[in-house]
Design a binder for these strands. Sequence first.
DNA 1: TAAAATAATACAACCGTTTGTATTATTGTT
DNA 2: AACAATAATACAAACGGTTGTATTATTTTA
Lengths: 343, 343
Amino acid sequence: MIFKKNRVKLEDIARKLNVSIATVSRALDNNPRVKLSTREAVFKTAKMMGYMPNQIAKSLNSGKTNIIGVLIPRYDEPFFIEVCRGIDYYARNHNYKILISSSRNSYASEKENLIYFERSLVDGIILSPTHETKNMDHLKNLVKKGIPMVLFDNITEKIKGADHVSIDDKKSSFSAVEFLIKRGREKIAFIGGIKQKKVFQDRFSGYLNALNKYKIPVDKNLILHCDSLHREFEEKEILNFFEHLQIKPDGVFASTDNYGLLTMKTLLKSGLKIPEDVSVIGFGDVGLGELFVPTLTCIAQPSFEMGKKAAELLINQFNQSEDPNYKKRTIKLATRLVEREST
Amino acid sequence: MIFKKNRVKLEDIARKLNVSIATVSRALDNNPRVKLSTREAVFKTAKMMGYMPNQIAKSLNSGKTNIIGVLIPRYDEPFFIEVCRGIDYYARNHNYKILISSSRNSYASEKENLIYFERSLVDGIILSPTHETKNMDHLKNLVKKGIPMVLFDNITEKIKGADHVSIDDKKSSFSAVEFLIKRGREKIAFIGGIKQKKVFQDRFSGYLNALNKYKIPVDKNLILHCDSLHREFEEKEILNFFEHLQIKPDGVFASTDNYGLLTMKTLLKSGLKIPEDVSVIGFGDVGLGELFVPTLTCIAQPSFEMGKKAAELLINQFNQSEDPNYKKRTIKLATRLVEREST
DNA sequence: TAAAATAATACAACCGTTTGTATTATTGTT
DNA sequence: AACAATAATACAAACGGTTGTATTATTTTA
């Protein structure tokens, strides 16, 4: 690291001006304790020498890094990227940077990443637990140590001392399915994601609740829980499911937009017309739905907002860190149904 | 930052065991200079007390952060996310972390972010310049200071002392257009991106070169350079373009997959059949093309590989940092044409 | 013009590690 | 048992800043 050795530091400026390091430090901070003329000289010299403060040294003695650790289950999911954008947006405006990491759907990796965050002294953590994360002790321990934390999206279990941001998955999917039912659909298929994941469990519950309310019998054949962790396999799973279906559905509730698109693709190929023969509704609204023909009706989840809110809650925690009774919050953001051509 | 105050540090372990801090430090490092029994006691106590090394202090001391700064023009472009995944993959395996930031297509923000990277003492930088970045002085200065750097994707100008990774945009788009021509297409439209951006200029050149070679006259009406910086507007631009076209094209070369999909959507809506009436070919292969019906033929750009390669080059630079004559490299990764249903 | 008040600056400790060197403890040799 | 050799550990400086307190320089006051 040659370049780090040659860095201009306070000492260099001090030597050049024949003043102490402390004076230079205060001068750059525009501290009135330093004579104006000295301050000006320091500024000038600092600029001339190309001085750049060493953030590491600052952090070491302030105990603050101004970095928020963000842990998501995967990068290749537009929802998470949107959330990150939201976090970044809010954080940037409040002088924080974000350090994003992916747990790649692995509990072990989640733990590892959190350890790294802790070692690096991030000021706080925002994360969405993986589907493998059943035991929350690693999170509870961090919170117990006093590390500010906000959970979002897939909240299996609430953690005392942390904030939570999510949507009401049950209610949202209920209304999606109800929407199909009110349009006269009765053979409604469900395409879910990894069964162990809370959000998908909830979306499934919502589906069941809606059928129940309208006294529509549940047909197990119309239910698919995808469990591919990678894009390439999802399509095959869905294709396979519809190919082997005896009864053709007249409606499909897909628990993500991606599943919704793959469903439409499969159905179209099998010769069905959307929405005439079958209506399809997705979940997420991550920008994919509008690309397709027909465009996909879906439950719009406010991803960017979710990120912004998570960052806001976290930064509030920072500012309240002196107050042990600061009340943590659980926020459910509103979703809405965006009607497009597929229904 | 209460939690940082309560952190267990070497001193606490040292005090408990009645040894010096230096001994604890060496013991945890498994240094044979420390008696085995002492080492064991230190390990045990460290574990018991929940010791976690302070990365900031380590970095200050070593002058190494083990962090790679990654700067991309935008988050909401799957290509960049794929590149980041590739960087992350390689970096992770070599004990580096990545700090991703977005310049949001702004030259000013690019400069700001680089300053932040420099202050934070990242060990090196991987970036894709924005379309606004004409003057490369800020990059040259960093390189001159000795900061390892790798540029990828949109390389306006090569920087002496940095590595470069990209594809051959001209050749790739040439072959895309040639492919259409060989299929008998003659009225081939071009959908480009921001004109100021090198990659799009090159893709346009490739288009022109192909027409030239096959003596097909260039029709300005068939050429569109999109300059929306946000998703929402791109569709309108493309819709508008095709609506006002007098002559209907029999082929379209879209310089990104997203443009390709939007094009297909527009053409399908106007009643044309793909690929019967018009063939469409995209660029990127970022996972969108397979969702659509018909699936999109495209030039596949090895995004993940590009990230991996960039990280590899950067980390090589780290290891050669003592050698001022270490030869920097410019790598062009191969693209390939993936034929799907749209042609 | 000397003492008091205040402005300007310097000194030194600290943040939590690492690491070269000095010191002390233990072992081996005769 | 005395000394050398070696093992084990302690001391202290360094990384680059910040900040409380001490010191020096200047101005004000009587």
